[in-house]
Amino acid sequence: MIQTLFGSTEEKPSFLKRMKEAVTRTRESLSERIEDVVAFRKEIDRETLDDLEATLLSADLGTATTATVLQALREKVDRKQVANVDELKRVLKEELLAILNSTNERPVQKVDGEPEVILVVGVNGTGKTTSIGKLTHLLRAQGKTVLLAAADTFRAAAIEQLEIWGDRTGAEVIKNKPGGDPAAVLFDALQAAKARKTDYVIVDTAGRLHTKTSLMAELEKMRRTAQRFSATAPHETLLVMDATTGQNGLQQARLFTQSAGVTGIVLTKLDGTAKGGVVVAICKELGLPVRYVGVGEKAGDLLPFNSQDFVNSLFD
């Protein structure tokens, strides 16, 4: 499982990749020449491009994504499709939108009469439990029934925290003792949900750094538990990511996808000053869609992701 998704492709650089490396130097000088061409026009000069680069970098898009996006932009500029700075920004936004909208949307393959299982994973302190509370609130408002599985048996008071959210949103919490087996909690929750014909089961897991192999293996085990219950479960695996996360976010997404089969991202804490631009890099490389954004601590502060709004916010 671990090696299948990415391991093999990373080991041996593909022919294409090696080709790309070989021509990188030429490409660099080419783009510099384009800059020179651009510089002849009054409105779009080197400084403008530098400003745009700074904007993208400061939003945590990372050097690679920033370079790709700007390269595409330069090519368009060279084909004289762009006349002024406003136009340039519009084209840049289109580039970013194209990346964000090109993700693999997989429809949920759920069996009728069985609950939809949502597994929630992520590193420590990104806001998994809070996001689950808000997501439950959202689903409850749509008249759905939700059952919460307190599978974070590790962190102090994690179960209590989820129970408070359960009370607030009117969702039952299935729990075990602290320190217990999270897969066992999941199993109990799935059984209970089936018996009660609940619409959704949302599974809270302990925060874990993606570098801890044994903890990542635990997620694989939980997936297997869910699969034994229903072949297509978990129907959605959400990776909760803090918007302040820098370039490490990409590695997080990679490794959580390998172990937990992530199908979407919840980008939290967007009510601060961080832009969360690393999700662009994630969309570009892994094709993972952003499903929701967290914008506050209240139950209603979870919104469906809107790529247009997100891109606009990068330039605020």
Binding site: L57, S58, A59, D60, V123, G125, D242, A243, T244, T245, G246, Q247, N248, G249, Q252, G272, T273, A274, K275, V278
Partner: peptide, 12 residues
């Protein structure tokens, strides 16, 4: 502070 923080670290 979280060591995984990106560009926003300076602001906060």
């Amino acid at each position: 502070a979280d060591s995984m923080t990106g560009q926003d670290a300076v602001r906060s």
